[in-house]
Design a protein around this nucleic acid. Structure first.
Lengths: 250, 250
DNA sequence: CGACAATTTGATCTGTCTCAACTATGGTGG
DNA sequence: CCACCATAGTTGAGACAGATCAAATTGTCG
């Protein structure tokens, strides 16, 4: 299964989708030790309240952060793909206010806090890069708030699809207009504040309008401008850097 | 009107509600130049897309960040009170993806980016404090996502009230169980993804249940445990430090 | 006192949820 | 290779939370 670049390459690629690094930054990032673990579908990487002594990097598969609100309802607050470090915050915040779990089988690398602290102390430019990551993450959260608060279901689902597409594209996880989003409709619903049933009906609408074509969990977007328009999607909030020299050939 | 501590004191108080600073940190923060402006009700401090060369600190009044989604619907993504610096991100992110406006007349201090960059370069501990701020902000955003996505109106409104209460209390803006939230019901609705009408009806429910008592925009909470329970509110996500030695006497 | 904004009330409409059944689909063991 | 099972997707019917529209009432402030 490990048919993908190593942990450091993925992490660096992800950071560089948003921040500029120089050769020395990359070199130092590569000095961090990483322990790899394979995690089975639907397992938690950590759960709410749990302290931790390492940050993780998703190498393959999809993870999500979620909160459980009164009555056991679940809200997914973010999705994470290869290269993402969903729990940098554990380095600076003691109590974790949410869970992190894996929606598909996934490989995950763990980097000890001390290793990260060490490189941050040594290289302020990396501190700034991680700080920028946190700010971009905040920006994405704001967009989700607007999406859930003020958009009706079709726009909302379309918007999420656009976001996943753009983020995965930045990581080289998209082939043409086709990408894998191995997430059930129920999970999509938990992310968008909708029921699984309504996500299903909404997806049908999008498919009938030829805005999305799906077989199983592989989706393709035949008409990006039209989807984008329906979704009211503007990628600016992702703060992606213009693609470097454009070769993500692994 | 300026019946409040100065910009630096407020900013320091706010940072210290979440991060530990030492004497030297505080001293250095006080060296930053701040230009004060009085901003009239409902004016923008900046709007989406606008670049900026200073960060602002709210000294009095209430500000909010908002996004406009297709069709002109507005979503407020955060409220800001005295001491808050709602646009630290402008230091590290070029394009701003949202607007910042003032809901009441407000005094706002502007601190030039260079001044902030200078102190961050000089004092890594302050960099970490601002980084922590960003992470806490992210945590609050996540809670808003869960609140809007998965809670029904009464819980949702109650939760927002709890959050404002706690945050304002941490800044010494609460008297007993009474605090001023000078925000219209329409604005509350824009923050919670509800209509003004429905906020109105929901507030009536809360009042009838004796969970909130309001005269105008002054609210008090007669039974905190009960409100907290209805709201499913757990302040952990605010990551507030245990109140220092407890004297916020200005 | 007048004017304007905010709150409140009523009536109606609609998006989305819930519940429940049914149908694909993919993985597993015989 | 197929039968079986569990999981996810799909469909239908009914209920309800919350939106919308419009009017009336209550501040609030010059």
């Amino acid at each position: 299964m490990p048919q993908h670049p190593d942990a450091h390459t993925l992490l660096i690629r992800q950071i560089e989708s948003v921040s500029r690094l120089d050769e020395e930054d990359r070199r130092i990032l590569r000095t961090m030790p990483a322990r790899i673990r394979l995690i089975r579908e639907n397992r938690d990487i950590f759960h709410e309240g749990q302290p931790s002594s390492a940050c993780c990097v998703i190498l393959s598969g999809v993870a999500c952060r979620y909160k459980i609100v009164g009555g056991g309802r679940r809200q997914i607050v973010s999705f994470h793909f290869a290269g993402d470090m969903p729990d940098f915050h554990s380095l600076l915040l003691e109590r974790c206010d949410h869970g992190l779990s894996v929606l598909t089988q996934a490989e995950v690398a763990f980097i000890p806090h001390e290793a990260i602290r060490a490189i941050l102390a040594r290289r302020p430019s990396l501190g700034a890069a991680f700080h920028r990551q946190a700010l971009v993450e905040g920006s994405i959260f704001r967009e989700w708030i607007a999406n859930i608060g003020r958009r009706i279901a079709p726009e909302r689902v379309a918007h999420l699809i656009c976001e996943c597409f753009e983020r995965m594209q930045a990581m080289g996880l998209v082939d043409q207009s086709t990408f894998a989003l191995p997430v059930t409709q129920g999970e999509l619903g938990d992310a968008m504040g909708l029921s699984n049933v309504h996500v299903n009906r909404t997806m049908q609408v999008l498919r009938k309008a030829e805005l999305v074509r799906s077989k199983g969990k592989i989706h393709s977007i035949p008409d990006w401008p039209k989807l984008r328009e329906l979704a009211d999607f503007d990628a600016a909030y992702l703060h992606l850097l213009p693609r470097p020299t454009a070769q993500f050939v692994q």
